[in-house]
Design a protein around this nucleic acid. Structure first.
Lengths: 221, 221
DNA sequence: CGCTCATTTGATTGTGGTCAAGTGACGTGG
DNA sequence: CCACGTCACTTGACCACAATCAAATGAGCG
């Protein structure tokens, strides 16, 4: 679909190349598209954070992913977008019409390779999400989530303030938990001195080793 | 990674095209590759069913996916495979060296487009998995799993016998449940007359409508 | 200040996990 | 052919963790 973590570093001109697309500045809460809209564009996040949400008939919600700079949104849909996407912060996106992609691949095959590599990264990140969702304890999921946020913002170290632009409900719907459980376990991590919660929109890792110990479900090999 | 459901119908020569690769027949329990092996090949499932498994330090296991004919395995890894993959049944696979992919894209850009479409399908199926894992009740997950199996084998109808080549432990590790819970809920569906369990390796949908009612978490729109 | 909304905290319930025993299918060897 | 062993699965009893219901606290803003 859309999330290509860490594509940015080696993609100075953006994954689409500098030629395509136009930068667009959007405010917080701006909706890029709705579930069911015709899927006409790809969006590369230049700055800010976006949220991809699926809503179900019974009111349940799943936050499929959060998109950070370097991630690409809009890939992996059919004719219609499969989820809502809106901005959690003021943001900037680079837009590429999907219709141009076929042409672009034909004209510059290396572009196709790059897209493919991004798709592979996307698949890998969905794997990680499914592992997170399979982890039994709420504490493990939350610790894993915090680590993934810190990693993606390049702040996986002690005493760095990491922005937490999504609300508890978003975290809960992302991890398959309730807001109460998220809150309780964040508090638990804080009481243990592992993290700090200096206010609404951020957290600080105080003891990275112990935070990683919570996520003991690391892969063998 | 690897799962491109329903790619087969419109891909008569296999996703790699008839030219590449060689068919290979393997027996049940054959291991295609291990987690950590150098990721050198793509495998297209021609017949049979494969299982992709991640194992964690603490012994927990996740069955990331089951691969059916038309699905492709080995995509979306970095240098190393990210999971084990073995056959659940006697099977046949079509092998393409990953090293040839770059060349193939450069020479035949439409090949790149096709791979990209497959990757998109793969991402979509991982979305579905994450929805399945987020669904609250065990019954919903199992009902959803049964429906997805029936769909992928083209037997989504009443009174059709659907093969169930994976054991309870595989299902449990795929859905984030325990074997006992899987067993109990299969029994529950059977007692309600929704499915039949005519023996080890298969099930029969007796009341498709009610089975789908169990999975009421359908998407809006 | 007082409203609203997000978050936290508390009390209770319920689903699914855990531990344990029992059943059934299948294969082998006496 | 049947006894036995093994393995997968089922069933049962109990318990823990997270969901639910409910109330309190805190932050942001008019």
């Amino acid at each position: 679909m859309y999330l290509f973590p860490h594509a940015a570093p080696d993609v100075p001109n953006g994954p689409m190349g500098a030629a395509e697309g136009q930068g667009r500045i959007v405010g917080a809460t701006t909706v890029l598209f709705h579930q069911g809209d015709r899927a006409e564009d790809l969006y590369e996040v230049v700055s800010g954070v976006f949220r991809a949400t699926r809503v179900f008939q019974d009111g349940r919600r799943q936050v499929v992913a959060f998109a950070y700079p370097g991630d690409v949104i809009g890939f992996g849909h059919g004719d219609l977008y499969r989820f809502d996407c809106d901005a959690l912060t003021p943001a900037k996106v680079q837009i590429t019409a999907r219709g141009q992609i076929g042409d672009a691949i034909r004209n510059r095959p290396e572009f196709g390779e790059r897209l493919l590599a991004m798709a592979a990264g996307e698949v890998a990140s969905m794997h990680d999400l499914s592992v997170l969702l399979c982890r039994k304890s709420a504490l493990e999921r939350i610790a894993g989530f915090l680590i993934s946020l810190a990693t993606r913002t390049g702040k996986l170290a002690n005493d760095q303030r990491v922005s937490l632009p999504m609300c508890r409900a978003d975290i809960a719907d992302h991890l398959g938990l309730t807001i109460e459980t998220v809150s309780r376990n964040l508090t638990k991590l804080k009481l243990r001195g592992i993290i700090d919660l200096p206010g609404r929109g951020s957290f600080v890792i105080r003891d990275l080793d112990r935070l990683q110990d919570q996520v003991e479900c690391e892969q063998v090999h």
